[in-house]
Structure formats: C-alpha cells, structure tokens
Amino acid sequence: MHRFHSISVVISLFVFWLVLSGYFTPFLVTVGLVSSVLVVLFAHRMSVIDREGHPLELRAGVWSYWPWLVVEIVKSAWTVSKLIVHPRLPISPTMMRVKMSQTSAVGQVMYANSITLTPGTISVAIEGDEILVHALTQAGAEDLAGGEMDRRVSACEARA
C-alpha cells in the first residue's frame, strides 16, 4: 500500500467529517483529524482497505469522462421522458449482450454503472466479459452497441 494512497484516504475522510460536523473549533478539528487517521490505521490492520475502495488511480481519467457522461445522461433522460409522455408509448424493449473491453474490476464496474445510470439502458447481469443489457428502445440499444461509452471508459481506465 502506497503512502500517498493512505494520505488521500485520510484527507477524504477528514473533509467528510468537516462537512458533516460544521464546527471549526480547534478541539473538534483535532478530534476529526485524529479519528480519520485512526480509522485508516485500523482499516489497514484489518486489511479491508484496498485499491478498489478508493480508486485513486482513476483521478486523471474521470475529469474528461464525467462531463461527457453527464451530457449523455441529460440527452437520454430527455429521450425517455418524451417516450413516457408520448400518447402511443412507442417503446421496443430489447435484451442484448454488450462486449466490454475493460480489464480491471473497477473499470468494469464503472462501465456497468454508467450503462445503468443512463436512462434507457440497464445492465442486468455480467457474464464473463459481456454485460446483459436491457434497453428501452431499439435505437438506444444500437447507440450502446456502437461502443462509444465502452471506448471512453477504457480510455479513462488506461490513463491510470
């Protein structure tokens, strides 16, 4: 375990403490810092803290991936909303398998969660290197099968 990684976990926990507590007296800030350090120390001894719980190595990639994902979410949410209020409900639900090219577990989770987060597609199950996806419309399924999201997640993973 790298020292840099542990320090980053301590800082995240400390910021979380500060935001939740809202008191900035010296005593309480010290208590918060000490308890963050202690939590990370104990977690090390129990070896429950690992790369997956705090995937610091993704920090370079997500800043280009998240804005794109937000735009995708807004676009597909708008499409799904139009489908819902459409009088004839023109949906064509499809189940399909999508290849994923990610190698690490974190990258695969990121891809599956991105699929679920976008309205109109849901990852139902993961089988080997394929994701079983339920799409609300044929067009959405073809969009996903085009593989742009897969490429972008892989690029984000590769920048680690």
């Binding site: 309205p119 109109g120 849901i122």
Partner: peptide, 23 residues
Amino acid sequence: AFGVLRMPGFYTRMHAASVIDTL
C-alpha cells in the same frame, strides 16, 4: 413517476425510475 405507473413490464419501469434518480 408517471412512467413507473404507465410502463408495461418490470424492466421498462426501471427506465422510468432512473429518470427520477438522474435528471
């Protein structure tokens, strides 16, 4: 919420629910 009520079938309802969760 209207979509959750209107959509047929379980999986299609999930798509409507994710509109609430995201946008």
